Simulated scan of single mutants.
Amino acid sequence: MAERHTQKTDRDLNGMSFPEFLEHIKQGKTSLIGDKKLIECPLVVYTRICPTCGSVFKKGKWQSRQDESDVIIECVKDNLIINKQAQDIELEITPKQLDYSRYAVHVKAKANIEGVQTEAALDTEVRISWETCDTCSRISGGYFEGIVQIRADKRLPTQEELDRCREIAKDVAARSREKGERLAFIAKIVELDEGIDIYVGQSKLGKQICRAITDAFGGRFSESPKLVGQKNGEDLYRITFAFRLPEFVRGDIVSVDDTVIEVQSCGKHVSGIDLETGRRFIENFNDLMDVKKLGRRQDAVPAVLVAEEDKIIQVLDPETYETVTVKRPEFLSAEPGDEIKIIKTVKGIYVLR
């Protein structure tokens, strides 16, 4: 019995016989400090990962997606006990996947203990519990806190506008999630004849999306809260954000006070070409007092340039065959006899580029 006890004690020296332990000390290496090991870890440790989005449950809450190997390594680090006397610690953690839910992990450690170089190694197993996270659970259950309704003033939005609004909404949601807002998700996007409805997991995400679309296109939005219940004694609301894209888009011919322009872009600023002078026009959209749509570039028709003199030209009206005198815009480079594009409006005839 005594002999067996001695052998067990020898092998308690971190898996080494006593002679081997003495040799390690001579070489300045040991894995024991007093009666404590350099590193310790349970034989099996556990982590929770969402199978849908890859989020990880740590420190009592779900956190953003990580690479699975990184999750395994961090799980081992979180459960690793390192001797408090150790300094200049170097860890080498090598995971090896065994199956869908298990990893074998080998850990090597080096440290300095009062000038003595110390080494140790151990093996552990990480088991993954696949659980649906709070966000994915809400998405699958159709949860949403707000609806962003994208429409346009006095017209239907173009497909290009709607596609861009989708991109903006997804970008805003992605940036919010990167900052830790786990409920900043888009539950669904519904296409309608008059526009699209974007269902969002957070009401404040709806407002952020509206502001981002305003920066890109201009327009305006309003909020309409609706009481849908109570939780922990507090009222719960769903908010509908009614967003209206500007009435005017690229190619529209509009009058701004006494100026007729062809719109090139309409957002926070309206920019375009003054069709009378040919000069560039740009103004803050909110500063414009009287804006009326006169037509579209698609309404333009071909006409013959009859004559030119200084800043005046004459064109042949293709409908009445009468000669009409208009101002020559700076962009016009045609000569008498050439065909040019004109548009007829209630304010008169204008030449297009």
Rank of each mutant, 00 (worst) to 15 (best):
K311H: 12
T325H: 08
I253N: 00
D310C: 12
D310Q: 11
A307V: 08
D258H: 10
A242K: 13
E309L: 14
A300Q: 14
R244Q: 13
Y321N: 05
R250H: 10
R244D: 12
Q298W: 12
Q298P: 03
I239G: 07
L245G: 03
A300W: 11
R244F: 15
V326L: 05
L245E: 04
R244L: 14
D252Y: 00
D299M: 07
R296S: 13
E283K: 08
R250I: 05
G295Y: 03
N286V: 12
F285E: 14
D299L: 02
A300L: 10
E283I: 03
I282Q: 13
F248P: 01
L294Y: 03
F248I: 10
F241Y: 15
D257E: 10
Y237W: 04
D252L: 00
L288Q: 02
D252S: 02
V306D: 15
V254M: 01
E276P: 03
E308D: 14
G251W: 02
G267Y: 06
R244I: 12
V263S: 00
R297I: 12
E322L: 11
Y237C: 04
E308G: 09
E234N: 08
I282E: 09
I282W: 05
E276N: 06
V324G: 04
E262Q: 09
Y237E: 11
K268E: 14
D287L: 12
E234H: 08
I313Q: 05
A303L: 07
V254E: 00
Q314P: 10
T325E: 08
